[in-house]
Nucleic acid binder design. Sequence first.
DNA 1: TTGTAAGCGTTATCAG
DNA 2: CTGATAACGCTTACAA
Lengths: 334, 334
Amino acid sequence: MTLTDVAASAGVSPQTVSRVLRTPELVSVDTLERVQSAIGALGYVPNLAASNLASNRSMTVAAIVPSISASVFADALHGLEVMLSPSGYQLFIGTTGYSPEHEEELVRAFLGRRPDGMFIVGAQHTDAASTLLRASGIPVVEAWDSSENPVDSLIGFSNEDAVRALVEYVRDRGYAHPTFAGSFQSGDFRAAARRASFEASVAELYPGESVRVVDSGVAAVDLETGRDLLDATLREHPETDALMFASDVFAAGAVLECARRGVSVPGELAVTGFGDFELSSHLTPTLTTVAVPNREIGTKAGELLLARMSRGGADAPEGETVDLGFEVVARESA
Amino acid sequence: MTLTDVAASAGVSPQTVSRVLRTPELVSVDTLERVQSAIGALGYVPNLAASNLASNRSMTVAAIVPSISASVFADALHGLEVMLSPSGYQLFIGTTGYSPEHEEELVRAFLGRRPDGMFIVGAQHTDAASTLLRASGIPVVEAWDSSENPVDSLIGFSNEDAVRALVEYVRDRGYAHPTFAGSFQSGDFRAAARRASFEASVAELYPGESVRVVDSGVAAVDLETGRDLLDATLREHPETDALMFASDVFAAGAVLECARRGVSVPGELAVTGFGDFELSSHLTPTLTTVAVPNREIGTKAGELLLARMSRGGADAPEGETVDLGFEVVARESA
DNA sequence: TTGTAAGCGTTATCAG
DNA sequence: CTGATAACGCTTACAA
């Protein structure tokens, strides 16, 4: 079923059918109706691959995230989709599993689809991936990271500053022995940045205090791992009075486990998270954490991409760097 | 940068470059090397739209889900992607927001990309959508539902049977006044099926008992709504001794709120959920619920699609209906 | 307002 | 093992 079939059936030229689809206002009312009913009768669905090839626009945006099932990325993707779909853009999604090599493969594969724009988590890529991205000439939004040398646009917040602010908060509340806990697998540069910031902040704000980090390695980001991290901390660093997690998920797992064991929070042990997930405000005690703008990252990325994709290449605005900030959320757990 | 440019640079025909990409084993070693280095030097990325048009294969699978950020669907999508990507298939994802009309639009738009397969949540669609799906001729997997008239393949479990099993469980534990609570927005046919099954099961298993359902309407599926549903139940149906939620999310919200208020679970009020989310086993008390195979739905769908997509149309296996079952998970809350 | 011609970048097919 | 040629289904550019 092709344009040509529809044209034959409606007694017009293929071009007229194409006009009915793209620019109906340029077609006379009765041909319009005739063609539309032919389309309906034949069940014609335009082949977008052909359209793409001929017009050099795919009406497609590629999104590359570490994982779909991590709610932070799911939220951003949702924001992105809500922003793009009214304008007719469709979303290609791929996951890297935090592997830079896999990311590079994905970039290559996705670029082959000739997307009109690209959304990618993180600002650190393999050299080849960065080169490909730059060479592609399409608007690219990197997210969730800060960088002094973005490919194009960059939307995020400073993981470093956020952790630093949390360490300050903990110090101001009088806790003397903070410990940081999380899973720091090699490709997760955001987690690594948080950890590095914790180490630097403690060195500066807690002079003389030793720097304690508990690392679960490649363990999944789930409640179970939070419980394990709590165990490890209690075992390895019993002097800890404030346990700071790299994610709310871990913190929630720890808080739930403390409740079960009768460990009082924050009395015996203060706990902080990172991310302000929905669960965090429903725990007992509620969780002190830092809120980051997941959903807004997606919507803002959508806005930026839309602006760049709609104009011609020439007058397109420059790549922007947008810092959406973060907010320390003081609650009961610390 | 096109195939032809690479061919010119390597001193071979375009067709040979194509062979290097698709069937390198048919090319002599030294041309292979020459072409590959030309590809690298020029930074050539094949245009898949052109490939799609010429070969009539897109190496693409379209997935249509109500929402990405609902973890059940995110899990399934993850399973699907993990299954498909080793074979080189890429995933197109669209969300319907539980609107059948939006679903139909998406089906139409996605079919325009000529995917090699399609994954769609639910087995109830608009007539037009069903017709389009059937006419497309590609393998289609409907999921999460049961139906006597699937478009093609169907993977899921019976929401009806699962709720029925849970009602039986509750009755067997001696609870006398069960109430069902959830959000039943119009396009969510799975939620509607659960509700209907609750009503039928109570009518049968609790003769003489009135059928109580609390409906939050279009409220978001989140912990907050769970708390609201708990409130409404306590207010409207104080005789309730077992509160059965349409989702673990609601149940978790209610259990957390009960802890905060000092309502004893299951002493004063038993609670059940639906879905067996990770959180459910970490609550105090742990949540009695029914486990459904989210991730497996995705992987099984991937398997089925792969099998159908690899063979030629002729000897492709028939559409299958796979019932992955469910399991009542008895824990502390009921 | 409509039609004609050419071409988008790749692969299928058949020859060599 | 390699190359020439003709599609694939659509849009752009121009002509009528």
